[in-house]
Design a protein around this nucleic acid. Sequence first.
DNA 1: AATGAATGAGTATTCATTCAT
DNA 2: CATGAATGAATACTCATTCAT
Lengths: 215, 215, 215, 215
Amino acid sequence: MGTVETNPRRAPRQERSRATVEAILEATIRVLLDRGYDGLTTIAVAARAGVSVGSLYQYFPSKEALVATLVERHAAALVACVEGALSAAEPADPEAVVRAFVRAGLDAHRISPALHKILVEQVPRVGRLAEVMETSRKLAALLERYLAPHRARLAVPDVRVAAFVVETAVEALTHRAVVERPELIGAAQLEAEATALALAYLLGPDAPRRPRRSR
Amino acid sequence: MGTVETNPRRAPRQERSRATVEAILEATIRVLLDRGYDGLTTIAVAARAGVSVGSLYQYFPSKEALVATLVERHAAALVACVEGALSAAEPADPEAVVRAFVRAGLDAHRISPALHKILVEQVPRVGRLAEVMETSRKLAALLERYLAPHRARLAVPDVRVAAFVVETAVEALTHRAVVERPELIGAAQLEAEATALALAYLLGPDAPRRPRRSR
Amino acid sequence: MGTVETNPRRAPRQERSRATVEAILEATIRVLLDRGYDGLTTIAVAARAGVSVGSLYQYFPSKEALVATLVERHAAALVACVEGALSAAEPADPEAVVRAFVRAGLDAHRISPALHKILVEQVPRVGRLAEVMETSRKLAALLERYLAPHRARLAVPDVRVAAFVVETAVEALTHRAVVERPELIGAAQLEAEATALALAYLLGPDAPRRPRRSR
Amino acid sequence: MGTVETNPRRAPRQERSRATVEAILEATIRVLLDRGYDGLTTIAVAARAGVSVGSLYQYFPSKEALVATLVERHAAALVACVEGALSAAEPADPEAVVRAFVRAGLDAHRISPALHKILVEQVPRVGRLAEVMETSRKLAALLERYLAPHRARLAVPDVRVAAFVVETAVEALTHRAVVERPELIGAAQLEAEATALALAYLLGPDAPRRPRRSR
DNA sequence: AATGAATGAGTATTCATTCAT
DNA sequence: CATGAATGAATACTCATTCAT
């Protein structure tokens, strides 16, 4: 079960190879979107990519590796998104850091919500696919780094815990709002709420008062 | 895809039947725990339950129905747990309501963390299993009911949104802490953080100051 | 395959038993009509008959026996029908004999065409079910007996062959017309054609001229 | 019930593929002959063909499709046989037409009587297999075309009905004689009787007198 | 490198039949 | 006699993976 080879089989150096790999991954996404994880068969992917199953196995040692690569890329994109936003934020202002983090989370979830949904809901978190999905850990670590300098001003004594809590809450909120209940809450309001949540928790009574809004 | 029959096939009237059904469900859990969702085969379940495949199909129309029943029961237990806690809390005190909600969430996750983990991580949210897993909606609605009377005192104008946010954050926090990172944070601290998070968000600057703790 | 027990298990002496047997056979017919031979399951039959599977097996040793009994009865009814008609016909007149035979064949096929169709088209002629379906042999023998006295006047020297030919042709004609192509030909015309066919063959040039009909 | 896919799955382009397909069909016949329709399992067929089940399903979408193909081929062969004979007959002579038709019917039944028997007696006429078995309709239509020019000389006013009657009678006679009662009647006599039957019916009193034969 | 034919282990599901109650 | 729960052999069909061409 956990013994399946999931590392990409060969680094495609040549142009054509790279194109084939991309075509295969692209096809994987499309099949995933069309038929779900359960309908993801190597034949379907190969057909969609316009290559033979043989070629597919030339570049990916197993079906799982296909999905793993996809998940990895998606995760990397998420992390990169948040990383970029944080590094662009004014590091001296904890509030700015939090705002950047929340916004980046939202942006990240808008990269490809449909794929994200399938990846989260249908792809079993087993074997390699388990590790790969540990984006949260990275995001929390990232946030921790940016929060650490402000340790003194936080209402939460343990920065690691603070980052874990905020990352978890913000990520869950964003995910649910975007993927499961888009009808309940709009992007703007979601951002406001997530920010309010994080700031209130992190800064406590000193957090900026949120403007009273009428319903 | 969503066409599989998942409703229990027959209501077991006789003593023996009821026992068989329980044995089957019990076996399902054990197989799930041992081999994961992927290793869940009807033969394995039947063998483990000490019955024949035929008996399994006498009571469950499909493999999916087996899992659906399990998920339903688990979800019902969660909801019942929270429901009980909320109804036992002092309704006049929003803080008490929130504390009760958080504690109940924690308790609920301790019912059978291992099964919970598999159910969440490995069972594909497709077809009937998708609906069945919508515990959060129910919990949010529940919380909303208990929060509504205190609308005026909340920092969040929209009670429905408030309930959604709190439920999402608390549930995610609890889940992650219990299921994924038990090493990071203990139950007691988790409860403190979750409560702080919820209260800070809901009550804003008026939230009770949390005692400064040393690490 | 041919070893299955198909003889009725016990002669039901008591009133209630007889009623049960009838209910079961009746149910078999209904299931056959509703779901075809392929959908004929013992459970369905038992349910339809309002008895338990156990009771079904009290009276019929196997599923095949169920169908065999049905086929036997149906066949017996056909034979009885023809037998009655022939014995009622003026034995001195070969033409009258043939007319009676044809009409009886038609009447027989109207007993329950739907069941007849299923029995012929879907029930595999294997094992006991093969023998049982040999109605034709009996009918041919019957006809032969009534034709024998007129041997001298027949255009066909071998009465056995004559009976075989006529029985085969008339039976096939009737079956196809009633069961497969009811739209092509009405009962009246069918009777006329079948009679003409048989008489022309049997009596040769001396056969009664058929009235020219306009289309 | 009638929803099973029965169209051949892929057109075998390569040499090897074609051979595989033929091997599978050949094996199907052999299994059918050996164990009957009931003993026709995909495993048995694959084993007999010396291929894997997978290969079987590469070319045939279902077990039913296997049989459907077989039936189609057999039916096509029958029709071709009759078609050829009719087109070779002197079209100006109705008697010649009828003789050709009868002889072709006989020849056709000698192509592979054993398979024919099983196909007719054991293969359930349901779903696609029902349509596919409608050879008679085609044969009747064929005969009608060749009989039409002689409409004026026929004793039967409606040519369509005439063709239906003759086709039905001849086919039934041939089938029964060849398949069920080969001991009763030889091929030569059968041909004579069938011809006499058809001619007497079609031409009436003008039909050629048959030579009196002694038993 | 590419192809796609071939493989065959693996699985859900059905249903005639039995037998303890 | 009746019941219906339990049995388990039997079977169609899928799909990841391999490898001869």
